[in-house]
Amino acid sequence: MQDLLRRYGPGLTLIMALMVAFWLLMLVIIPNMTLFEQSFRPYLPVTEVGGPRDTYSFNNYLKVFDGSIERSFLGFTFTIPVHVLTFWLTIWYSMVVTVMCFLLAYPLAYYMAKIVNPRSLPTLILLLFIPLWVSEVLRAFAWWIILAFRGPLNWLLLNLGLIEDPIRWTNMGYTGVVIGLVYTYVLFMLFPIYNAIQSLDTNQIEAAEDLGAPWWKIHWRIVLPHSKPGIASGSVMVFMLSAGSLLVPSILGSTTSQWFTQTINQWFNDALDWNTASAYAFLLLLLCTLFVSLAMWVFRVKLSDIAK
């Protein structure tokens, strides 16, 4: 702040401070507070808003427990509220997406940071970035085309003789959604890990090899521990973005895949019940945050590691 004042003078500093304040207050805090406040009030006809029935309660939050269905899993049959099931499936498949992003990103990040010729690195990064310039909607539809019944992926697999009949990719539960989310968010995993591995002294890798370590041991004991903060920050980003994505599940989802954000969207746009929708949205935010904190505690990652 002192620095800003000295460099730009009081006028410009005030304008900048006001703009940041406007951004935070008008575009982040007030809308969220409004929705948060609404989430505790019932959905009422306009004439009754502010009337005697308009009281605060947790009823909107408790709606997730409505409408149980029967499911069986690993031989156990149990009933579970449909929205809770959706929530757990969202968390579970977001984790699947996170793990798959890690499995894809880690070798590539290592390759970029330690193996590739530095002269071809900019080309490689550009090739990774170009797809990001295309809108997310178009990229999701591109996958929709790739995964189509008579699409290029089935054509390729058929011609390679790997499959006998085309596969209905977008009608296999969450397959399409997972593929789409991995593709959309893998770079959010790649770059933090790349940064972390890049900061590792190559001599340490060589020292480990010189002491007789095979390649997997070098990764397990030297490279992975060093890149843990990068992996953690990439995982948190991919997980939160996946769990909060609406577009990809909407486009690449099948008849049997329901994402929790789609449920929220239905409350907003189909039921026009913004109150319950807000309650569900805050529930997602809260539970995802809790889940991430739990995962960080399990993997002994500190918040300060991620912020690096």
């Binding site: 340490q204 060589e206 090899e209 007789g212």
Partner: peptide
């Protein structure tokens, strides 16, 4: 290098900062 009976001491030493000393020493 991991198949040769040599041990290299690097100019910057390249100790493993995330391991305690005894694990560093007995990594091999």
């Amino acid at each position: 290098p991991n198949q040769r009976p040599t041990a290299l001491i690097f100019q910057n030493l390249a100790l493993f900062p995330l391991m305690p000393i005894w694990e560093n020493i007995t990594f091999g």
